[in-house]
Design a protein around this nucleic acid. Structure first.
Lengths: 214, 214
DNA sequence: TAGATTGTTAATCGATTAACAATC
DNA sequence: TAGATTGTTAATCGATTAACAATC
């Protein structure tokens, strides 16, 4: 019996980019795209787009391309974005505030349901519509709202302890902004936002430009 | 004549993680590590660390491992972090403020030299030590301070135009927080911080947990 | 010396791309 | 129909891992 060919994580990570580009196309009033055109917009080859989509079905028409709205709907369903996922945010410093206020986190399948901070002075303050809550409330909010997705925006030293609490309460996926690698069980998904590391990888190339260093 | 084996970009992207982990080790007073121990901290195999480092030289001792401080110094030199790179930030909304105030961007080789915004009401306001400047000043600041690194934190609709201005003025590497793929010349490095796309790739797995969807 | 761990090679594994028959 | 573009296979390319001689 053949195992079905399961899409790898690199494929899954590209799907949100396809979805976003399709949303922009729709905004522009464009109703049909070829893999070639879509690829040019997001710097991906046409073959890769077709291959990626082929893991999930046949969404195009030969000679024509893809119906933008239909393909978008397919991808959103594949990604689970037709549901609304409740999200909690831990750490409401400057970064946490920016996250809490950015509507990308309160849209298209995501839905911020709780902000938490350890600083007693912040408890009760509103950020947008939501009050900042104490960690004591974390467990109950996660349980009551069936939260499985969390964002960590606390200082590096607290990130692991926060992750442990979150997982203990039932969180299954974490987006971590703190500059530490988290140790978590195999059935928890962790991804990192690490702008400083990204900048540090670009200085490598800058340092070698213009032939100053071989 | 043999071509030297050049490290690929995946390798370069891991170096900052090695460097950071070594800094933490140093803070903890640990002066020696094996590739095994380092790997466990950052969830990378020992073989991969040794292979990555081998592109740049021989930094360890058989039977012993690596001297933490020495290896850190080597990696920082490789990444160009022994220089200080002037950075400009375009877009000083909530996110831009968080970036401007985070000292990870003002440390270890990076050094924020200019904040820019299009909103006349913001011009002149201080964020930390730095005043917010008008776009009209962008070109001169980039030229005068020899800026080659920029961070874009403007809304998606303006990001491409901002990138064009930056590149025109001499910027060679861009960290883009706006949710759009930028079209840039081949000799400009662009990297993306895209937390919403990352969350959207995790909902894929969440939607399939517990066997609700096959 | 015995034990540990590096640096490196070769084997494996996985991801991307080219190419084209199918077909709109 | 002729032209365009898909879905898919096979070939290529690249990255990771296993294994081990060298050596501290």
């Amino acid at each position: 019996m053949d195992r079905i060919d399961v899409p790898s994580d690199v494929v899954i990570r590209r799907l949100p980019l396809y979805a976003r580009s399709l949303r922009y196309l729709l905004d522009e009033g464009i109703h049909s795209v070829s893999s070639q055109e879509l690829g040019e917009r997001i710097n991906v080859t046409a073959a890769q787009i077709r291959k990626d989509l082929s893991y999930f079905g046949e969404f195009g028409k030969q000679g024509i391309g893809y119906d933008v709205e239909k393909l978008l709907n397919h991808i959103e369903r594949i990604l689970g974005l037709t549901q609304r996922w409740p999200v909690v945010l831990i750490g409401v410093g400057y970064l946490g505030q920016a996250i809490a206020r950015y509507d990308g986190f309160n849209n298209q399948g995501l839905h911020m349901v709780g902000l938490f901070d350890s600083d007693p002075a912040k408890i009760g303050q509103l950020v947008g519509e939501l009050p900042i809550l104490a960690y004591a409330r974390l467990h109950d909010v996660i349980r009551e709202q069936h939260v499985r997705l969390a964002i960590i925006a606390v200082p590096a030293t607290y990130a692991q302890a926060v992750a442990d609490m979150l997982i203990e309460s039932g969180v299954r996926a974490i987006l971590n902004y703190a500059p530490v690698i988290l140790q978590t069980p195999d059935d928890v998904w962790v991804r990192y936002i690490d702008p400083v590391a990204v900048l540090h990888s670009m200085t490598y190339y800058l340092a070698r430009e213009g032939g100053e260093i071989s």
